[in-house]
Design a protein around this nucleic acid. Structure first.
Lengths: 219, 219, 219, 219
DNA sequence: CATGAATGAGAGTTCATTCAT
DNA sequence: GATGAATGAACTCTCATTCAT
């Protein structure tokens, strides 16, 4: 049996030594730098402009180097979306959760909505990979993980809804309807189509939430 | 005085004869065939795959020939979208408008929803051109016209809402909220995200409409 | 022996009848209309913009129709050049030929120069077809004829030079040198390169002509 | 402290090592090969024939590869012209500058003339980019630089003229007139039009220069 | 790990020209 | 003579990706 000069083996499991650990940490850091470059490229130039070349240029790499860290462009975008969902979750978590249940629904759902309303590129990102049109090069695992992150961002609002005494199934119905309403409004803002109806999205969301909480209280 | 074998003249105006009319009709027909090819290409291959080359290939033409009928790729897509909106409007118009106001809202909004639910590629089409992301080569006129077609498809539902005695402004609010809800649900279906919440979109729409009409009746 | 219904034959030569003559005249007229369209297209849009399509469009024809009158695009341009040379000759002929020989040289050479100086597109035209680079689709005859037209435009100046008592050979030398000088200056104007030397072409031509006539008088 | 195997650092500045230098040199060499291919393509096929495809083919590349070395077709042509002007300047510099001022004018102007007379494709090149007809994609800087190179090639002749005691303005007039004469003669040779006048260009230039120097000496 | 070079496929578009009707 | 349709070849340029070094 051969022993790698940089790794030991315990009970058949490879045990990374210090050098390997450091290398790993460095690799993670460089991956992060590439993602930063990808994000700024995407945010400034949009989907069309953020080519692998451009991302590499901004990261200070040559195009080929990116492929040491990401297998494809899709994977870069998936990583970008993952990071976006992290920021979304952080934003929702930071929203105040004092007051009664109705206040909390408004606060948490509003935070979700505002995040995308204020950061339209994050919305683009979500649409890009969540769209069924294109054949996504994502693994099932990665897809499931991104789904879970998205669902998590709605959980605080779902929890607040649950406080109205809804059973699990009903809570799920409500959170889905709310999610659909928000997605619809965001899309209308995003595409500029809301002007057709001369309405403003934030008021419409508030109105929806008011009716929702009122209805739940009436039960 | 000589008479052209192919055209007559009345009061100085050229009057198209049978031959010209037939030629025109043929040209329209060929335009239609190209559009058919474009639609199937787009529906099967999506945005990326439906190149002018591919469209030409399917229509049995060389790439250059397409440009006798459409000035650019954007124009092909615009024509496709226009035709899609015509079908949408026809579908909505065909929905029964008997029963009371609540029935009519359900019928007309349901027809709108079902059209896109049953024809997801038409939804893609709508998103393609209605998306702010990419620089559309559409004229303002064309854009406005497409907008108007979209709005028209919602008008029957809006009319039914008006029968509840809503003033114009309130009706506009309601139709916008309804539109957002439908768009959101369609997107969730379309991207497969609705499974996250283990719900089914049609029920959710019916629920939304029930609450809406109930609320309006309570006023 | 068959007799054409529209032509008679005398001594083996076909004799056009009245109908054929009229058809010919019409064809010539239509050829002229196409040339007018070609000229305005070329003058407004330059070489790149004046496509056969564009010329046909301006002439009120479809592209294919042009080929009933001209065998190729080169031939259209050759005809355009022929017409341009006719205008050049007319312009030179119209220049005053009073005064002494020196005055006449100045007048006639000046007219030649001014024509091209004032009509840069005619210069383009000349360069286009007189250039050795591209394979011209011109017949030898046509080429020779265009050459003769160009030479004719210089003849008035050559005649004036001859009055100084030059022999034929010397006159030829002088007119060639003068032609070269004019062509050179026109090119410098045309390409904007004369600014490199901060000079103005017309003064330079006058200076050249003054030195020339002075030198000839000194003989 | 780790030392990269391929780069050293002095005072924080990256110092290119042997490997980087060699890579650079190779890149330059490949750029040169592409330029060679472009030149032969242009010389054999003229402007129309020397497409990027053809240039790539001759250089043994795929079309896309060219764009690693030149940003556009215009840039290829600009580089070609720049290199042509370098050769022109070298040729003029190599011309003997012994003898008196008149000899030197003849030598230096003759070298300029002969360069283009012997290399007609270089003349084409000059005309291509110096022509006002087509919209050149050159930056102002590049254009100015090429202008300067052209002017520099005339400077030796201008210097020789100055020795006749001309003031700056007069020297400028003379060099411009000389330049125009040369350009005109070159064009006549190039287009074959000089045969119209049955003259030979070199003799005409010599004659021009003789008259010029004689006139200056007479002052 | 990173480079630099190159691939290969493909994009949209334009054009002179041909030809059956 | 003229049309209208279509061809076919060409154009410049972009991109994700690969791979020897």
């Amino acid at each position: 049996m051969e022993t790698s000069p940089t790794a030991a083996t315990i009970a058949g499991e490879r045990v990374p030594d210090a050098r390997a650990l450091r290398a790993d940490a460095l690799a993670q850091a460089r991956r992060g730098l590439i993602l930063d470059a990808a994000r700024t490229a995407f945010f400034e130039l949009g989907l069309e402009g953020a080519s692998m070349r451009e991302i590499a240029r901004r990261a200070g790499y040559t195009p080929g180097a990116i492929y040491s860290y990401f297998a494809s462009k899709e994977e870069v975008y998936a990583a970008l979306l993952g990071e976006s969902l992290l920021r979304l979750n952080a934003h929702v978590a930071a929203a105040p959760d004092d007051g009664n249940a109705a206040d909390r629904v408004r606060s948490k759902a509003g935070a979700f909505f505002d995040f995308y309303s204020d950061n339209p590129r994050d919305l683009d990102l979500g649409f890009y990979l969540f769209q069924g049109v294109r054949p996504l090069g994502l693994t099932r695992d990665l897809d499931a993980q991104l789904n879970a992150q998205l669902r998590a961002a709605l959980q605080p609002a779902a929890d607040a809804l649950a406080e109205f005494g809804l059973d699990a199934a009903s809570a799920e119905v409500e959170i889905t309807a709310l999610f659909a309403q928000m997605v619809g409004l965001l899309l209308l803002i995003h595409t500029g189509r809301i002007r057709i109806f001369r309405q403003q999205a934030p008021q419409l969301l508030r109105r929806y939430l008011d009716q929702l909480t009122e209805r739940l209280q009436r039960r």
